[in-house]
Amino acid sequence: MSNLVSVPKNGSLANTNSNANFPTLSNLLDDIFNRDLPSVFNSNFNTGITLPKVNIKETADAFIVEMAVPGLKKSDFQINLDNQVLSISTQTKEENEQKGENYTRREFGYSSFKRTFNLPESVNDEKINATYLEGILSILLPKKDEAKQKPARSIEIT
């Protein structure tokens, strides 16, 4: 079997081997360097937990922040508002100890995150509420009455 390599006019190497079952070294390197590297840097190396993703929706009456954080309890969260900055954080600790005849094995795990958001002036901070259901933390940020969208209306010409 011959290993032919064609060199296009742009100077890059192209593999003409059509056997797709065996990845080439360049394909492996491309896979490594084209991954989502920021998620690697945000990960907690003890547990593999990454910074949770957040969806923010705006309706006529409110903003809704949804965060996927399965495996936690609502008592694990701290939600604070300070000077129009909303912060959501959690810190959990897990300890596991197994004792055998000739050994004691102890494992400790810690995970935490903190996300902060600058709230617009249109949010009524007195009526913010949060719920946690089936791994989704939802925070309702109602708008002030003057910031709510008003319905469309017709204007008569006089």
Rank of each mutant, 00 (worst) to 15 (best):
I157G: 06
T24W: 11
L140D: 11
K93E: 15
T50E: 14
S18A: 15
E58D: 01
D145M: 06
S154M: 07
F108G: 12
G100M: 02
S6P: 00
G135N: 13
K148G: 00
K9S: 10
F113G: 07
Q98E: 13
T158A: 13
R35F: 05
D61I: 08
S2Y: 12
A147V: 05
V7W: 14
I88S: 05
A14K: 13
L137T: 09
P38W: 07
V65E: 07
T59F: 04
D125V: 14
E95H: 07
Q98N: 06
A20P: 03
G100Q: 07
L141P: 04
N27K: 08
S111E: 15
S87W: 05
D31H: 14
K74W: 00
K144M: 08
I88K: 02
P70D: 06
I139S: 09
N46F: 05
E95V: 12
I49C: 02
G11K: 00
A14Q: 11
I88C: 04
T131Q: 10
K143D: 04
P70I: 03
A14T: 12
F108M: 11
R106S: 15
L37V: 10
I136Y: 04
R153A: 11
N27W: 00
P151T: 00
I155Q: 06
G48W: 03
D61C: 06
F45K: 09
F63L: 10
P151C: 01
S87Q: 10
N42Q: 09
S12P: 00
I155F: 08
F22M: 06
R35W: 08
I49D: 09
R115H: 09
P70S: 03
K114G: 05
N96Y: 14
P70H: 03
L25V: 04
I128D: 07
M67W: 05
P52M: 09
V65T: 06
T131N: 13
E94N: 12
Q98H: 09
V123I: 15
L137D: 07
F63Y: 15
N55D: 13
P151K: 03
P70F: 02
K57C: 01
F45R: 08
S39G: 04
S43F: 02
P8E: 15
G48I: 02
R105W: 08
L140A: 06
L140G: 03
S111C: 14
I139E: 05
K53S: 10
T158F: 11
D145L: 11
P120Y: 06
F63V: 06
R153E: 13
N17W: 05
N44A: 00
S39I: 13
S87C: 05
K73E: 02
N44M: 01
T104M: 12
F22C: 00
D82L: 04
T92W: 00
L133D: 08
Q91S: 14
K9V: 11
V85Y: 05
S6G: 12
N15P: 04
D36Y: 14
K127N: 14
E126Q: 13
Q149C: 02
L51F: 09
E58Y: 06
L37G: 03
I155D: 10
K93F: 15
S39L: 12
D125P: 01
K143V: 04
N19F: 04
E121C: 00
